[in-house]
């Protein structure tokens, strides 16, 4: 399985976490993801996700003028988005600790 496939679903939570930190526009989100080490997937992937999350009312956006170039769309979390982030963190903790347990157990018996 490729990283991109594994990332599906998890990326949603990462976007929520990044946007919760501060109001950001699309390119900033991509830059932050890259900064955190996600550099294997195409950056454009975030836009369909952002659009869907906005449709699901997890995000809101405002258009602001930028110094150069086109207007920028800034995203921020809604209350529903914050709740979704909390649920994501719970799910992620659960998943992560179980996967870790499986992996360490496997390694443990191998040794």
């Amino acid at each position: 399985m490729s990283t991109t496939q594994m990332l599906k679903g998890i990326l949603d939570g990462c976007l929520l976490a990044i946007i919760k930190e501060k109001e950001v526009y699309g390119y900033e989100v991509a830059e932050k993801l890259e900064h955190y080490g996600f550099n294997t997937f195409s950056e454009g992937t975030i836009y369909p996700l952002l659009m869907r999350m906005q449709k699901e009312q997890l995000l809101t956006s405002t258009l602001k003028k930028s110094t150069a170039g086109p207007r920028r769309k800034y995203y921020s979390l809604t209350e529903k988005g914050e709740q979704e982030l909390e649920r994501f963190i719970t799910r992620w903790d659960y998943l992560q600790s179980n996967v870790n347990k499986v992996l360490t157990h496997e390694y443990g018996t191998d040794k």
Partner: peptide, 12 residues
């Protein structure tokens, strides 16, 4: 959405 992607492509 075109505007958003234009901005992204410009920066990138």
């Amino acid at each position: 959405v075109v505007e958003e992607l234009t901005d992204h492509l410009l920066e990138a």
